[in-house]
């Protein structure tokens, strides 16, 4: 916390804090499960290892965030119950993550858009007045640094290889375009989080920071900037059939044995 003394801050409403944690946890959870589908079938053995390791990191971040959420919600549900016992419509991830993993180019394009937006979100929480989240974010950022190096290298590799690699990347960015900016779309009641010092800026500022961060990379690689989110209030609702399928997959073990551990 740098901008105000603790006594100046009003507590965030539990609901606003819960929605922030839910958005972050569901984002990491859904992209983690989606990308773990590459385990065993990635285009290179090295990428099989890398994508599996990255997915494992994301699922672990989701689990840690679900634990914080369980404490805030305090309704008797543990992290597993929150993670697995909701119908597909009850998930609150960004629509960017509603797309199927698609081909390798789509996975890379989506990871780039997501990781860069998530980095801006984590930075905005680095001085959070909600200490359990601040501490966890401090740890998560050290791990995400490796994801950023990995995804930037792949984006450059595909973008600068003329023919099929670049064409597939452009096609993927085009398919994702309308949902590209959904990760940082303003959350309901974000004013309460701002006034409490949980986050350091509103969603509109975070979106501007994200655009400033990715613009030089995309310009250098002659790739298009994503347009604004098509429908910000629906940025985290009305999920796709691709997600419904994934939901059926990732809840299957839980439905088979509710006591199974992660």
């Amino acid at each position: 916390m740098t901008t105000a003394a603790a006594s100046d801050l009003v507590p965030a409403t539990p609901n606003a804090l819960a929605l922030l944690l839910l958005a972050m946890a569901d984002d990491e959870f859904v992209i983690g499960f989606s990308d773990s589908e590459w385990t065993g079938i990635a285009p290179l053995l090295e990428e099989d290892v890398a994508m599996s390791s990255i997915a494992q990191d994301e699922l672990a971040h989701a689990q840690a965030l679900f634990r914080l959420l369980a404490d805030v919600v305090d309704d008797g549900r543990d992290a597993d119950a929150i993670a697995y016992d909701r119908p597909a419509d009850g998930y609150f991830h960004a629509r960017l993550l509603d797309h199927a993993r698609g081909d390798w180019a789509q996975t890379i394009a989506r990871r780039f858009l997501y990781e860069t937006a998530d980095a801006v979100r984590l930075e905005a929480l680095a001085g959070s007045s909600y200490l359990p989240l601040r501490d966890l974010v401090g740890k998560i950022r050290r791990e995400e640094r490796y994801h950023a190096m990995h995804i930037t290298a792949w984006l450059e590799r595909l973008a600068s290889t003329a023919g099929e690699p670049r064409n597939r990347l452009l096609a993927a960015l085009d398919r994702l375009a309308l949902d590209a900016a959904t990760v940082l779309a303003p959350l309901p009641d974000e004013l309460s989080l701002l006034m409490a010092g949980v986050v350091d800026a509103p969603g509109s500022d975070l979106d501007a920071r994200w655009r400033a961060a990715i613009a030089p990379v995309l310009a250098r690689l002659k790739l298009p900037m994503p347009p604004p989110a098509a429908d910000p209030p629906r940025a985290r609702t009305d999920h796709s059939d691709a997600f419904r399928w994934l939901h059926g997959e990732f809840t299957s073990v839980r439905r088979l044995d509710p006591r199974a551990a992660w």
Partner: peptide, 13 residues
């Protein structure tokens, strides 16, 4: 460096 990511989260190849 062959791979930033290795057999466990804390290792590179």
């Amino acid at each position: 460096l062959d791979n930033l990511f290795g057999p466990t989260q804390c290792r590179s190849l």
